[in-house]
Amino acid sequence: MRKTSRWTAAGVLVAGAMLGSTAGTAHAEPSSLYAPSALVLTTAHGQSAATATPERAVTLTCTPDATGTHPAAEDACAALTQVNGDFSSLAEISRGQPHFCTKEYAPVTVTAQGVWGGKRVTYEHTFANECIKNAEGSDVFEF
């Protein structure tokens, strides 16, 4: 019985040592507590993205910090955050602010593709002209 108790004690010590050595093992954790938000935004003159060649494209990453090639990344991220990533609601931000645009028809198509709040986003909209795009597209499509 003494041999059995020694082996049991030795087994407990070895198991404890092994468990203790794995307690400090680093585990892979997410790099951020926020869902990713990274987009590619384009503008083109034409009636649809299918028929127009993009003239300008920028990247916009909003989480965890506003970065990318967008010239006003912080303002664009703030506008998108305000509408919870709903691009069709961007015009609501500029409602009530005076904007004077001509009635010239020179269509400008904008697109957004990527991820917002961890969800896939695909958006396309055609504005009547550049002035209306800047007025209704908020800071998001001003580049």
Score class of each variant (00 low, 15 high):
residue 24 G to F: 13
residue 30 P to V: 14
residue 134 N to T: 05
residue 10 A to M: 11
residue 20 G to D: 00
residue 25 T to P: 01
residue 116 W to F: 11
residue 127 F to Q: 07
residue 143 F to Q: 02
residue 108 V to R: 02
residue 31 S to N: 11
residue 17 A to E: 10
residue 82 Q to E: 11
residue 92 E to C: 00
residue 33 L to H: 05
residue 43 T to I: 09
residue 94 S to D: 10
residue 45 H to R: 15
residue 139 D to M: 14
residue 71 P to H: 06
residue 50 A to F: 09
residue 120 R to Q: 13
residue 125 H to W: 08
residue 82 Q to D: 09
residue 98 P to M: 08
residue 101 C to S: 07
residue 89 S to H: 13
residue 65 D to M: 01
residue 25 T to W: 12
residue 13 L to C: 12
residue 5 S to C: 10
residue 69 T to K: 06
residue 35 A to E: 12
residue 136 E to S: 11
residue 23 A to P: 01
residue 37 S to L: 08
residue 116 W to H: 03
residue 141 F to M: 09
residue 90 L to N: 02
residue 94 S to W: 07
residue 7 W to T: 07
residue 127 F to A: 05
residue 109 T to E: 01
residue 78 A to W: 08
residue 114 G to F: 06
residue 97 Q to P: 10
residue 95 R to F: 10
residue 53 T to Q: 14
residue 128 A to H: 10
residue 112 A to T: 12
residue 42 T to A: 10
residue 31 S to W: 12
residue 120 R to T: 12
residue 4 T to S: 12
residue 103 K to N: 01
residue 33 L to D: 12
residue 12 V to N: 09
residue 62 C to T: 04
residue 75 D to T: 07
residue 22 T to E: 00
residue 64 P to G: 05
residue 19 L to H: 09
residue 95 R to C: 06
residue 3 K to P: 00
residue 3 K to S: 11
residue 61 T to E: 13
residue 90 L to G: 03
residue 71 P to I: 04
residue 79 A to Q: 13
residue 89 S to D: 13
residue 85 G to M: 06
residue 131 C to F: 10
residue 28 A to W: 03
residue 81 T to S: 00
residue 41 L to F: 01
residue 93 I to R: 08
residue 94 S to E: 13
residue 105 Y to R: 13
residue 106 A to R: 15
residue 52 A to R: 01
residue 129 N to D: 04
residue 15 A to V: 05
residue 101 C to P: 04
residue 31 S to K: 12
residue 1 M to F: 15
residue 84 N to Q: 12
residue 71 P to G: 11
residue 121 V to S: 04
residue 15 A to M: 10
residue 142 E to W: 13
residue 124 E to T: 15
residue 67 T to Y: 02
residue 40 V to K: 03
residue 20 G to E: 00
residue 53 T to M: 11
